[in-house]
């Protein structure tokens, strides 16, 4: 098998199934399939699972470039788009659970939340910033936008910071987990800064900031 074949028929399907698994488990929990339950506060469980899965996938997306460089595995970049889109998928699920199940589509309350609750404002801004990235994730848009595509997709850095901040601010007292995420994001973004300082642009070797489909 060539590298391209291996990625198309093995690695990509594997990553796809792995990234979809949390959603399938939540679905099973919501409908009591295979004895699974979402626990005493199912809405909270869904919010937390969607949010943390989105954050995990966002961190993984940001790990691809450093890892491909450090491990000298440029082909890893082929997985990055899928990871990023799955992060977006879980953010949308997270937002939908909040709108429909938690706030019962109460428009006035949702507007007040977004305007008045700093942590909700942060999460909402992160979601808005993700929209253009998801919309321009196709091969065609990459070609059409050219160099501007890369600048646009650097938005993922502030998005990651907003996402961790959003988590940190809504925790009641025990901030251990948000701080762990903050450390991971700091490491991933710090590596990029350090790399740039060494005057080797992070993305130059392998082209643009999203995995090219074919190389």
């Amino acid at each position: 098998m060539t590298v391209t074949q291996r990625y198309r028929w093995l690695w990509k399907p594997l990553v796809f199934v792995a990234a979809l698994t949390p959603a399938l488990l939540m679905l099973a929990g919501a409908f009591g399939i295979a004895g699974r339950r979402l626990g005493a506060d199912p809405v909270e469980a869904l919010l937390l699972t969607c949010g943390k899965t989105a954050l995990n996938l966002l961190c993984l997306t940001l790990t691809v470039t450093p890892l491909s460089k450090l491990a000298r595995l440029p082909q890893l970049l082929r997985l990055r788009r899928m990871l990023g889109l799955f992060a977006f998928f879980y953010v949308l699920l997270h937002f939908t659970v909040y709108l429909v199940l938690d706030r019962g589509l109460d428009g006035a309350m949702i507007v007040a939340d977004v305007a008045k609750r700093p942590y909700i404002t942060l999460g909402f801004v992160a979601l808005l910033l993700l929209l253009p990235l998801a919309a321009t994730s196709t091969q065609r848009m990459m070609r059409r936008l050219g160099r501007r595509w890369q600048s646009l997709h650097r938005l993922v850095y502030p998005i990651a910071i907003l996402a961790v901040w959003h988590y940190y601010w809504q925790v009641k007292r025990d901030v251990t987990e948000p701080l762990i995420y903050a450390g991971i994001v700091a490491l991933l973004l710090g590596w990029r800064l350090w790399h740039r300082r060494r005057r080797t642009p992070v993305t130059s070797t392998y082209g643009s900031a999203t995995a090219p489909e074919r190389t």
Partner: peptide
């Protein structure tokens, strides 16, 4: 940090 206008009843359906 959050509204107290509504609540989620534990054990109620999703």
């Amino acid at each position: 940090r959050w509204s107290q206008a509504s609540e989620r009843r534990i054990g109620a359906s999703l």
